[in-house]
């Protein structure tokens, strides 16, 4: 299978990744090779096989619905690119 440049642009858009035009052909080639490689799976007979969701067939653990974390907003926001008055700043979303 061979992905076109437009298909790669569309995947990159879905993945929210800016890819420069000059890099598109290389990704198209690499991704096509990867998809060709994983296409081997088609040869496996799986009609009666259940998909595996968890290696140990465990179900999700639940805990009591009580507060276990304290508010550490200042500490966490030290890693933020831009904050003001405890809020994370992003470019204007609503005109």
């Amino acid at each position: 299978m061979s992905l076109t440049s437009d298909e790669v642009r569309s995947i990159a858009r879905l993945a929210r990744l800016a890819i420069s035009d000059q890099d598109i052909p290389r990704y198209a080639d690499n991704l096509s090779r990867i998809l060709d490689f994983v296409a081997q799976l088609d040869k496996a007979e799986t009609a009666s096989v259940a998909p595996m969701a968890h290696p140990l067939d465990m179900s999700q653990q639940l805990r009591a619905d009580v507060v276990t974390e304290t508010n550490q907003r200042e500490l966490f926001q030290k890693n933020a690119p831009q904050v003001e008055a405890g809020l994370y700043l992003v470019p204007k979303v609503i005109e």
């Binding site: 994983v38 799976l41 496996a44 799986t46 096989v49 595996m52």
Partner: peptide
Amino acid sequence: AYYLKAQKTRTLIR
């Protein structure tokens, strides 16, 4: 075609 298929082949491997 891909993800669900791979979850099934994962069962076979296990």
